[in-house]
């Protein structure tokens, strides 16, 4: 039983996470504090949502480099609908979701209909959507969102019991993030969506012969990813109380990193939602721990890079020795 558990990549990642956490808790003063740790998780939410979406994309053997740009564009669309068009907040938020869906559908259409490789398409739309966000907003930040909306990012559901005299808050966006992951897990590992997604990544021809409408599924997949980016834009904008065209720069790479660290095969065919979540937590904890230890931001980038290379090597070895 234990041998079998140890064979799963998620178990190993969990052990790494626990080990990392334990080391930091012992060695770094002030790290082990529920309030601070939970506050930090707010900043994991947007990359975490993008990573959940990215897991599905990578499972099909594809990639979506435009996710962070779509997020920025959706934030701008929402801000401008509210500020310039005077829309009420829920309608403006709806516009952001619609913009995300449209952007994702555009990606999906080119990828599935015209059969251009996803890397090429989304590399192009990464610039295109970012440029659109810049142009629409004239590169100016949009603020002044209503408190009810900001609650989505900055609010707390309740105090966490048992966290001492200075009780920790349970961040609203963290709860939303975990709910999305539960949904993603069910879709990926307990429904036909995940089975078909992995099959496309494993062998697209075989998937076609199995009477799967690969084109339609891919189109729907990239469109849904766009929608989730729009949703991430709501939370991201609420967390920073600002919509800005150059926000979330490089977040697409952060999302891909979480997915790959989580053990999803970059060439497709095998995915793990739990792994992605663990990857997100490991990277987040590592960065926070190093910051708490007073390591300068420049050195953190280097150290995180080293850990990622190590993880990639270990993942590669695991992949080779696994019986597939």
């Amino acid at each position: 039983m234990i041998r079998r558990l140890l064979r799963s990549r998620e178990a190993i990642l969990l052990l790494v996470l626990i080990a990392l956490f334990a080391v930091l808790a012992v060695k770094v003063e002030g790290f082990f504090d529920a309030y601070n740790l939970l506050e930090r998780t707010r900043y994991w939410v947007a990359p975490g949502l993008l990573a959940a979406a990215m897991t599905f994309v990578i499972a099909t053997g594809g990639i979506d480099l435009s996710v962070a740009s779509v997020l920025a564009l959706c934030g701008i669309v929402m801000g401008m609908r509210r500020r310039d068009a005077g829309w009420p907040m829920p309608a403006a938020a709806g516009a952001a979701l619609a913009a995300g869906l449209a952007a994702g559908a555009a990606n999906g259409a080119v990828i599935s209909r015209i059969q251009v490789p996803p890397l090429v398409v989304t590399l192009a739309t990464m610039s295109l959507f970012r440029g659109a966000a810049m142009g629409l907003s004239q590169a100016k930040a949009i603020g002044d969102f209503p408190p009810g909306f900001l609650w989505l990012g900055q609010g707390s559901l309740c105090k966490v019991p048992g966290t001492g005299a200075n009780p920790a808050d349970l961040p609203v966006p963290l709860v939303i993030l975990l709910a999305v992951y539960a949904l993603a897990w069910a879709l990926m590992h307990r429904s036909w969506v995940g089975r078909f997604t992995e099959l496309i990544g494993e062998n697209e021809t075989a998937a076609r012969f199995a009477a799967i409408d690969v084109r339609r599924l891919k189109f729907a997949l990239y469109a849904s990813v766009g929608l989730l980016c729009g949703f991430a834009a709501l939370l991201h904008t609420a967390i920073y109380a600002t919509a800005k065209a150059d926000t979330a720069a490089g977040m697409e790479l952060e999302a891909i990193t979480c997915v790959v660290v989580g053990g999803t095969r970059i060439s497709g065919g095998h995915a793990s939602i739990v792994g992605t979540l663990l990857g997100l937590a490991i990277l987040g904890i590592l960065r926070f721990g190093l910051e708490m230890a007073g390591v300068s931001s420049q050195n953190i980038i280097i150290l995180v890079g080293i850990v990622l290379v190590a993880t990639a090597i270990i993942n590669e070895r695991l992949g080779r020795s696994a019986v597939r």
Partner: peptide, 27 residues
């Protein structure tokens, strides 16, 4: 093999924290 890999990662992670503590003590 797997456990070996895990140990390597754990060591690396801790090595990653090494310079951190030194700085911590100093600064």
């Amino acid at each position: 093999m797997r456990r070996w890999g895990m140990a390597a990662l754990a060591v690396l992670l801790m090595a990653g924290c090494g310079p951190a503590e030194k700085k911590d003590d100093g600064a």
